[in-house]
Amino acid sequence: MATPATAAEPAILRLSGIDRRFGGVHAVRGVDLEVRPGERRAVLGPNGAGKTTVFNLISGEFPPSSGRVELFGHDVTNLPARKRARMGLSRTFQTSRLFAGLSVEDNLFLGALGVGAGHLRMVPSSKDGRLREQARAMASQVGLDSRLDDLVMDLSHGEQRQLEVGMALVAEPKLLMLDEPAAGLSRAERVKLTEMLLGLDESITLILIEHDMDVALRVAQWVTMMHDGAVIVEGTPEEIRGNQTVHDLYLGSGLISHE
């Protein structure tokens, strides 16, 4: 099996022998995964393959049934989500989890505040101004600068997905994990999203779950294919396109396009 180009550097994320059961369901089986700094990785697989569960195990939504999670060289297996976030891990959710009763700017403000100090500050401060600047800059980066004061509940689906990505980016993460950012987007919106992902700072490591192969295979340098809770193949986008197992899995779905 080929190795990523940056294999010489130590891994930013390492999963070893990760298992996760939900009652009788064995959602993730013995997953090993290594992601290196600056890498762009796509995690593909049919519905129910365990991709989002792997994301939740990495971000710390819940602990693995067995196995070990290492982030930035530290064992974080038993660390809660908020501590992993503060180490530099940011994620989005498959279905938007935004603060519906707050404005776009306030949402991004909280995104920027989360990794900093002063969560419990009860008086106005000059730090708020800096966080708001950060929030507004991120809003224009994800194309929401005209909707700063609008409540999130009044945004369209596409705008909410844009904000979902902005919420993860505004914290200036070292490791960014996007869970189906293109879900439900129009073609034009997907093109814009792809461009934004391609334009991300090279220092940011990106892990992407995506059903849209155009987005995933354009952005990723390295692909992990999951099926039935296990990793079945890893490789470059070209290798994945040509892989027989992948074809069999997606047979008839027409998701893999040949240019």
Partner: peptide
Amino acid sequence: RTAFGLGMQGVRDEPARMRALGFDV
């Protein structure tokens, strides 16, 4: 309208997101 108050409203709307952002809910 303060950092704490906005965080409280974040906890009201999406506690899981608040944790993912680094807050102690």
